[in-house]
Design a protein around this nucleic acid. Structure first.
Lengths: 255, 255
DNA sequence: ACCTGAACACCGTTCAAGT
DNA sequence: ACCTGAACACCGTTCAAGT
């Protein structure tokens, strides 16, 4: 699969780094065997779509490339999905289903800690698959597992002494934070890093160099944190920010 | 901070609702007048790109549509930008320039309050122009005003008793939160609302109806907050979440 | 220096027709 | 029920040529 260049050197977020599951076994899309007629299934369409997204990002998922992979013509895809947008939504939801499954049993501990566990699981999934950032938890109507994940996060807030409005706001804040930061970190890398031809270290080095060359008078903050930037871990940074938000939620629950 | 349990609108965030500026006057792209040769400028290219984005979103900004608007051929655009991606980045940055200008003089008050003022200004800009969500503060290398805005936010944290790492993390958390929540709220609307053919109220009503019909045993949280959802304001919700994050930052600065 | 014309290599989507 | 073939109406990008 693709390697995740940053190690799990987190103190606050101690979950293991995620790795891709293998795509669901394709159900009879025999590659190479010559057939007169291709035959897919929604599962194989989504699994192949996910594989394509993992390999070459959102731009790489074309109806035609997907069809070719499945051994059929472009039009065949439209039997399973209404169009490319729905395909993206459903592909994202198929991954969210796994995320949900992995946190289904979370609960019973400290509600804020459980909230963090769920948030981190979602973050890891998006970092692992940057394309998820733009499509995860987008439409609870079309994405059943977006809804379940939102519900799951919200349920933790119900164990805190908050008003319904406060719970609603806290839940949306956590979801927004996770998606936002993860998406940001995902597409911060300009495609040469994604494809693996430039290492993350080298990319950070170049950015660091550019920052160092800025006028210190005009950019005091940049200069103040350039060393932290040079050696930072996205995951640790996410966890630090999440903990700030969770601290605010905890404080509100105590007031 | 949390003395208002209803999270009432505009007690914390009291800026006025934003409206579009008119696009910068086009510099000699004479519409209707018949000319043998079109003549643009980077400014007019970006202004027209922004107008196109405002009218019909990211998908609506095609090189060909932009060129037609400017009265020339598609190839002429490539004199000013290297491609569509750079066009999007620069168009976003041209708006971020205005955001930066509007908060340039913020400072001197309570650092956390100033942080909030800047964050809200950025949020408003993205809500006003949902396409910004995906392109704002994406590449500080290509987007000079992304960098300045990041610097401006970071400078406020320098007035707090934090370590450099904590300042770096707090700044990134605020930026991530704003972009994430704003982007989420922006593309939560499925294009029929954006175009204005379905009102936001009607859309919320339909979503609310769907949520009410869910099994209360399986979705206790959704049922718990469905009434708040039905009447919520995106902006108030954003402000409530931002205040949770800022409370966490303030708390860390006191520790 | 800046734009045109025309082409290349793609796209998503539709739809009658096949099996 | 599910897929094929072929078309339609687009795309971004390139490049020699013009002015």
């Amino acid at each position: 699969m693709f390697d995740n260049p940053q190690g799990a050197r987190s103190l606050w977020c101690d979950g293991g780094m995620p790795t891709h599951d293998e795509p669901v076994a394709d159900t009879g899309t025999a590659v190479g065997r010559a057939r007169s007629r291709a035959s897919h299934s929604l599962d194989s369409v989504l699994a192949e779509a996910v594989a394509l997204l993992d390999e070459s990002g959102v731009a790489g998922l074309t109806i035609r490339a997907l069809a070719a992979r499945l051994g059929g013509g472009p039009a065949s895809i439209y039997w399973y999905v209404s169009g490319r947008d729905e395909l993206l939504d459903m592909a994202a939801d198929s991954i969210l289903a796994r995320v949900f499954a992995s946190v289904q049993d979370v609960g019973g501990g400290d509600p804020v800690d459980d909230l963090r566990t769920i948030a981190v699981a979602l973050f890891d999934a998006i970092v692992d698959r940057p394309w998820l950032g733009a499509y995860a938890l987008r439409d609870t109507g079309t994405q059943p597992h977006s809804l379940r994940l939102y519900e799951k996060i919200g349920e933790q807030t119900m164990l805190l002494e908050l008003t319904p409005t406060q719970r609603f706001n806290a839940t949306s804040a956590v979801v927004g934070f996770v998606i936002g930061v993860a998406a940001d970190m995902g597409h911060e890398l300009p495609e040469e890093v994604v494809s693996g031809e430039v290492s993350r270290e080298k990319y950070l080095d170049r950015a660091t160099e550019a920052w160092r060359s800025l006028d210190p008078g005009e950019f005091p903050f940049i200069h103040h944190i350039v060393e932290e930037f040079a050696h930072h871990s996205d995951r640790a940074q996410f966890c630090a920010g999440l903990d700030l938000l969770l601290a605010g939620i905890r404080m509100q629950a105590r007031a």
